[in-house]
Design a protein around this nucleic acid. Sequence first.
DNA 1: TTTAAACGTTGATCTATGACAATGTTTTTT
DNA 2: AAAAAACATTGTCATAGATCAACGTTTAAA
Lengths: 189, 189
Amino acid sequence: MYSLLKKYITEQSTISEADLKLIFSCFKPIETKRNEILIDFDTICNNYYFINKGSLRLYTLNTDGTENSRYFAFEGMFCTALPSFIDQKPAAEYLKTIEKCELLVISRTDFYKLVDQFPAFDSLYKRILELGFITAQQRIYSFQGNNALEKLKWIIKNQPHFLLRVSNKMAASYLGISPSTLSRIKSQL
Amino acid sequence: MYSLLKKYITEQSTISEADLKLIFSCFKPIETKRNEILIDFDTICNNYYFINKGSLRLYTLNTDGTENSRYFAFEGMFCTALPSFIDQKPAAEYLKTIEKCELLVISRTDFYKLVDQFPAFDSLYKRILELGFITAQQRIYSFQGNNALEKLKWIIKNQPHFLLRVSNKMAASYLGISPSTLSRIKSQL
DNA sequence: TTTAAACGTTGATCTATGACAATGTTTTTT
DNA sequence: AAAAAACATTGTCATAGATCAACGTTTAAA
């Protein structure tokens, strides 16, 4: 149940088995159906999710009803509506399961308690932030001045599993292109 | 000399005057000319810069020689090529002064020493990362599915000083549109 | 102060990609 | 297993914005 999480934590830092136990006790396992909303648009986010199985998606709705995919998370990754989680403002985005999931949930209170209490968990949080920042930066740069084909090549190079796990529609809305364009340029590869 | 930095630190957390002195002693004041390169494309970044006066820009060069502006920093802000600073890889971007500057420089070694030594500085670093992440996210979302006019409105709303401080050319390359388009849509406002 | 270079603006094209629609396929529900 | 819904693909057409060029203006260098 906690093996993936254990791997995640111990890969980044050293920590005793006893401390690990304490950390695990804050993570509650839950199971979800497909297309289940974990965080609603208007709510304030108070949980962090770790994915044991399945995948999640952060997205918004445009005024015309179409979706804008912001982020995808898969097995072994942490995921939440981070800006809302950090600053306790309404999420202004949806977090939804893409498929049936097995998740480990930790409350915001417990999460920051662990950050304060365990240096290993504090570095884990800093690493999450650092990586989140770097990933976001790279994504900006892959958008700036790149055409649809270059964006597609970028995602294939940087997140090779991505196109295999999500629908064309979701992928297109993540890359900021229309599904038809994505369909067309895929045949150009 | 250190008043802006003091304001930055004390706004986020409480810290003794003595500790502040120790922190300040790690920051070395320097003056630069306009268009001075602080971090070169191929180098590994080992400094963090705090701006007392002036402004900095992070950018890359495209294959065709045009520039791609990534980030602008002004008075009272920290700035560096963060991915390189964090992971000690070649910067793959330029950090350059836009105008004559007065900066406070801290080495990477000293920076992380302060993070380890002073809880106040540790939270400052976490806050830099959190804000960096949130800002980057917002920028991605302002790109996704927005046309040139909407991007311009977004930057005016979210960084009102921006257009007053940087050239049209730089602003356009930041927004991912051509200078002519920026010029045209500005007259539509 | 003069000269040169960089920049901003505006007009005339050109092009990548969006929008819409038709068709076939896959997935989900009953 | 059958029906319905969502999705992928591909064609045609429309358009936002790129590119190129000309010109005036501002900024920097000599």
